[in-house]
Design a protein around this nucleic acid. Structure first.
Length: 199
DNA sequence: AGAGTGATCATG
DNA sequence: ATGATCACTCTC
């Protein structure tokens, strides 16, 4: 029960993975405490052709190196001088595609999330955005490049929560207006009517 | 609707 | 070396 997701799971097509991760449970051991949240919103970044992706045109930089690694590696980046965002790398090495974790429903360790989330007044505000959930789960560039298949402090579990295709909504990704013809592609996925998706 | 914040990137 | 940008969040 509650088995950890395997390498093969992460190596599937990035759009399929973005949908398959909905309902899975992200687990983080932070200072010996278990933090957990169910993934309720994701965004797929399709790599070299994707004008919204950090790896557009085959860009390979120090920042995005993790995206070039094998499926199951974590890609954490820092932006706007303030925020961290967390991605799960999909497919195979040298296919620089990833799924941005956009929102979680907090399940365990809420008491230790609140002090890091000054603006949060309700549980559903703790992890309802890509940078919010990194703050709540205490994720920073220190976790960039870790392997979710083998790491002892960070992984994703299957709790056998069934999310059917009917429960999944899709729409344009957030914050990628600059991406021209890729800006409107419906690569954002969320669980319909879930209280913890980003606003 | 606007500010905050500094790493990152392309250019040269 | 420099300047523009940014897969965001908060408060007004």
């Amino acid at each position: 029960m509650h088995s950890r997701l395997s390498r093969e799971f992460y190596q599937q097509d990035v759009l399929k993975l973005a949908k398959a991760l909905l309902g899975k449970v992200f687990v983080r051991i932070d200072s010996g405490k278990r933090l957990a949240g169910m993934i309720v919103e994701t965004e797929a970044y399709l790599g070299i052709p994707d004008k919204a992706a950090h790896t557009v045109g085959g860009r390979q930089t120090i920042r995005n190196q993790s995206m070039w690694e094998d499926g199951g590696i974590l890609y954490v980046y820092f932006t706007y001088g303030m925020h961290h965002c967390m991605n799960v790398v999909a497919q195979q090495s040298n296919e620089p595609v990833a799924v941005l974790i956009h929102a979680l429903e907090p399940l365990e360790g809420l008491r230790s999330m609140y002090p890091r989330r000054n603006a949060a007044r309700k549980d559903q505000q703790l992890c309802s955005g890509p940078a919010k959930l990194c703050q709540a789960m205490n994720i920073s560039k220190d976790q960039n490049g870790i392997d979710l298949v083998t790491n002892t402090n960070l992984w994703i579990e299957d709790h056998q929560i069934k999310v059917s295709g009917k429960q999944i909504a899709s729409g344009p990704r957030i914050g990628v207006q600059y991406a021209q013809d890729w800006a409107d592609k419906p690569y954002r996925f969320w669980i319909k009517d879930h209280c913890c998706v980003s606003k």
